[in-house]
C-alpha cells in the first residue's frame, strides 16, 4: 500500500493531463493523503491465511461466444461528438 509520501499529485496530474494551480496541488495532496492514510488501515489486517487473488470475487472464465451484432450506426455513434466530419470524430491534432 502506498505511503502518503509516495503520492506526487503534481506528477499524477501531469499523467492525467489535468492542469492544477499550485494551491490546488497542495490542497489535493493533503486531501488525497488522508484518503491514503485511511486505506493504510488495511495493513493492520492479518492476511497470512488468505490466498492472493487477482479479483475480489472467486469467479473465473466469464465469456461470450464470438457472435457479432450491430449496435450504433455511424450517425448515432457521432451524435455526441462536438466536432465531426466524414463520419469521423474530429479532435485537436495529435501526433506522437
Amino acid at each position: 500500500m502506498a505511503k502518503t509520501a509516495d503520492l506526487d499529485v503534481a506528477y499524477v496530474a501531469k499523467l492525467a493531463r489535468i492542469n492544477l494551480t499550485e494551491a490546488e496541488t497542495q490542497l489535493f495532496q493533503k486531501q488525497l493523503g488522508s484518503v491514503l492514510e485511511y486505506v493504510e488501515k488495511l495493513r493492520g489486517v492479518d492476511v497470512s491465511q488468505v490466498e492472493a487473488s487477482a479479483h475480489a470475487v472467486p469467479m473465473f472464465d466469464v465469456f461470450r461466444e464470438d457472435e457479432p451484432r450491430d449496435w450504433f450506426t455511424a450517425k448515432e455513434a457521432l451524435s455526441n461528438a462536438p466536432r465531426q466530419a466524414n463520419n469521423l470524430f474530429i479532435v485537436t491534432k495529435v501526433i506522437e
Binding site: 466469464v62 461470450r64 461466444e65 450504433f72 455511424a74 455513434a77
Partner: peptide
C-alpha cells in the same frame, strides 16, 4: 459484439463499450 470488418464505413461498428461510454461493461470473447 461489434463486428470486426476492415474497410467498413467509419464508426459504423461501434457500441457503448468500444466508444468508452460511461457504465458500459466489457465481456471477453471466448
Amino acid at each position: 459484439a461489434c463486428p470486426v470488418e476492415f474497410g467498413a464505413e467509419p464508426n459504423s461498428h461501434t457500441c457503448p463499450t468500444c466508444l468508452g461510454l460511461p457504465g458500459a461493461l466489457p465481456v471477453m470473447n471466448h
